[in-house]
Design a protein around this nucleic acid. Structure first.
Length: 334
DNA sequence: TCAATTTGACCGTA
DNA sequence: TACGGTCAAATTGA
């Protein structure tokens, strides 16, 4: 498409400017010592903007403009908790499968560092299946949100090792996390059992892992901007080059980046005999997430995930952002 | 004892 | 009908 280039430019511009604007607001909030919630919200916005900007950069030239789900096809996880009639639920599951949002991310694991099996994304996942895939050397693992029953969170993901590069894991996310709403709560109660202090792990992990460019989902790539975006491999080496200038100018973001910009993903215990078991990682990252929803926006890339932070029906939607955002081109270098 | 993982079986889609 | 995705019983581990 011819217009895609300009669309990307404009989106990129929008996102960067948006990030700048919100950062300013945040600064003001910090001076005012406003509520933590407010600040969290602003940080979320900032990160989502940069996230999307990075995503746009990534897409630019390699992949066509991200598809946006038609409202009718944009699905949220089933609203009802576990089915009264499990049979019924099963019946619908295939339909859900069809329309459910889906996106793919690739995570590269650096085995040299001994840490091999994690593609964490801030959510807690429970493995519910593993399958040998036809024509694929490696089995595919299936995970669903640990809080499926307790929080009616129907997010799932599939993890499969790349045949081309065993260090790369392709993670396909399906559905959005409804439990993310509870994340804040988890964050507030900060030290829930699942939550451990993530900080020190972060610094370790970030040195151990690099993340390859995420590729937007092929097939039913949902609305990458609504969340997956937050995911799709924004955290790449290029990104690391891209972000520093932004971060340098923003001590707050800079510090965030220290701990959250480079995080691994989910555990793939089957593949890795690593001492870092799934639970451990889950704890770590849940934690990270809980404490900093914002981190997910970025870390998600490593895992693509995610919409970790955002539900599909929530704010990452470009349109929605646009409504709240006044574009001031004069402040943006053309 | 509880939570997570493993794994064979089942089911729906293509 | 083959294959991918999910279920759920059995197993494992903390």
């Amino acid at each position: 498409m011819e217009c895609e280039g300009s669309w990307e430019k404009s989106e990129l511009k929008n996102e960067l400017v948006q990030g700048m604007e919100v950062a300013r607001k945040l600064k003001a909030e910090l001076e005012l010592e406003s509520s933590a919630d407010n600040r969290d919200l602003l940080v979320d916005k900032i990160l989502s903007s940069y996230d999307k900007a990075l995503l746009i950069l990534r897409w630019n030239g390699s992949v066509s403009k991200p598809h946006t789900l038609h409202p009718s096809t944009k699905t949220s996880p089933p609203q009802s908790p576990l089915p009264h009639s499990h049979q019924q639920e099963l019946k619908h599951s295939s339909q859900k499968r069809k329309i459910i949002s889906k996106w793919v991310n690739q995570v590269k694991v650096n085995s040299e560092n001994g840490f091999e099996g994690s593609h964490e994304d801030g959510y807690r996942w429970r493995k519910y299946g593993q399958k040998d895939i036809l024509g694929s050397k490696y089995p595919r693992s299936y995970y669903r949100c640990t809080f499926r029953n307790t929080k009616d969170c129907w997010a799932t993901k599939q993890v499969q090792r790349s045949e081309d590069d065993p260090n790369i894991f392709e993670i396909t996310y399906k559905g959005s996390h409804t439990c993310s709403k509870g994340k804040k709560n988890a964050a507030m109660s900060a030290k829930s059992p699942d939550i451990q202090e993530p900080q020190e792990h972060h610094t370790n992990f970030q040195n151990m892992l690099t993340v390859t460019a995420a590729k937007p989902g092929n097939e039913e790539m949902a609305c990458p901007f609504t969340s997956p975006s937050t995911s799709s491999g924004c955290r790449t080496q290029e990104n690391q080059n891209f972000l520093p200038s932004i971060l340098e100018n923003n001590p707050f973001l800079g510090s965030l980046s220290q701990t959250h910009l480079l995080l691994p993903n989910t555990p793939e215990s089957n593949y890795f005999p690593s001492p870092f078991c799934a639970n451990e990682l889950d704890g770590i990252y849940s934690n990270r997430c809980s404490e900093f929803d914002v981190s997910e926006i970025i870390s998600a890339h490593t895992s693509a995930t995610n919409p970790p932070i955002f539900d599909f029906d929530f704010s990452l939607d470009p349109l929605e952002l646009g409504q709240n955002f006044r574009f001031n081109a004069s402040r943006f270098p053309h």
